[in-house]
Simulated assay, not measured.
Amino acid sequence: MKVRFYATFREIIGRKEVEVHGVRTVRELIDYLAEHYNPKIREELLETPRVGPDKPVDGMILVNGHNVLHLDGLDTELKEDDVAHIFPPAGGG
């Protein structure tokens, strides 16, 4: 599957896009990215104070254009031909 990164996540990973194989869920995808590229991505997505029961990810992950929060969250299933987009949290005021 293709994974595309935006803003600070692009800096963390060091690329704008990677190919990933063998992951079955969004949670496995995050673990894979942390292990093979940079553990900071797990911290930024899953371990901030803004993460909680109603918000399992700090930022936004789209799979084929659908926000995983509206699917099965971190348990959203992934297929080899999927495209995931990982965005940092939106800022502003």
Rank of each mutant, 00 (worst) to 15 (best):
G93V: 11
E35P: 01
P88D: 14
H36N: 15
I61W: 04
M1R: 04
L71C: 04
V57H: 03
L78C: 02
G22N: 08
E19G: 08
Y37I: 07
V20L: 04
K79T: 10
P49K: 14
F87I: 13
L29S: 04
L46G: 11
G52I: 05
V20F: 05
V83L: 03
L46R: 12
F5H: 08
N64L: 11
P88W: 08
H36D: 07
K55W: 08
E35T: 15
R27L: 15
Y37C: 11
K79F: 09
N64Y: 11
R50T: 07
E11D: 14
G92M: 06
G52Y: 10
A84E: 01
N64M: 07
H70T: 07
P39S: 13
F87Y: 15
P56D: 04
E28I: 11
G65Q: 03
R42E: 11
K40Y: 03
K40H: 06
P56F: 04
R50F: 15
V63E: 07
L46D: 12
G65E: 11
D75E: 14
A7E: 04
E80T: 06
V68Y: 04
A7M: 12
Y37E: 10
V83D: 00
Y6D: 14
V63L: 07
A90I: 09
I41W: 01
V3C: 10
P56R: 07
E28S: 09
